[in-house]
């Protein structure tokens, strides 16, 4: 790893990225090794050590927004799939890793992790949608290096109405309970995705981001 690790946050017009960038900067301060760059230039991904794809709003809109940046999806695929750089998708950025999104009609995802993004349907009709607020993560201790140091039941901040229904249970790294199991984190190989917002999850979130920045991905 180079002495100055470079984290690239992809900007494709999806909401505010400055606070996300600040969270990554803050998290990296403790080990002083990461430069954080927010960019819409696909060429920047070549020099990235870690890649972050945020996303808020609807699946179809985010996919369209990303596709509207010339060369971005190709560059992402090259760096994450071929070059196996550590990747973190956040919220809709995580959902885009799926085969298919069902929000506002059917939209193809990247197909990196088999599964569909479907509406949350809590068994208890009194539960509100969106699933909004702090929920407790359940995961197998040792499930993933990025979850190391956390207790089962740690709280993360969620705001979403759809979630990732993975085809292979082995790709689900963490869940929360909301009238049934809701996918909180997915991953395989060098890629992970969180339905929750680490950049809005206070101390837990900053520690999670720090773990991601330390993770070599393989």
């Amino acid at each position: 790893m180079s002495p100055k690790n470079k984290t690239v946050i992809i900007d494709y017009g999806s909401g505010n990225l400055r606070s996300a960038a600040k969270a990554f900067e803050r998290a990296s301060e403790e080990f002083g090794a990461s430069e954080v760059v927010v960019t819409n230039d696909p060429a920047t991904l070549k020099n990235a050590d870690h890649i972050v794809l945020p996303g808020v709003g609807a699946f179809a809109d985010c996919k369209a927004g990303l596709a509207a940046v010339p060369g971005m999806i190709d560059a992402l695929t090259e760096q994450v799939i071929a070059n196996k750089k550590p990747f973190l998708g956040i919220c809709v950025g995580m959902q885009l890793m799926a085969t298919l999104g069902r929000e506002h009609g059917d939209t193809d995802g990247f197909g990196w992790i088999d599964g569909e993004v479907v509406e949350i349907k809590p068994s208890d009709a009194a539960l509100k949608i969106p699933h909004m607020g702090w929920n407790a993560l359940s995961f197998e201790p040792g499930a993933h290096p990025v979850l190391s140091g956390f207790d089962v039941g740690a709280h993360a901040y969620f705001v979403h109405s759809y979630h990732f229904a993975a085809a292979n249970a082995g790709n689900v790294l963490a869940e929360v309970e909301y009238g049934g199991a809701v996918t909180a984190m997915i991953g395989r190989d060098n890629m992970i995705g969180t339905q929750f917002h680490p950049e809005k999850s206070q101390q837990f979130g900053l520690a999670f981001i720090a773990n991601f920045l330390r993770w070599p991905g393989v």
Partner: peptide, 8 residues
């Protein structure tokens, strides 16, 4: 293990 009430 559930969604928590938010204090704002």
């Amino acid at each position: 293990m559930m969604l928590k009430t938010r204090i704002i």
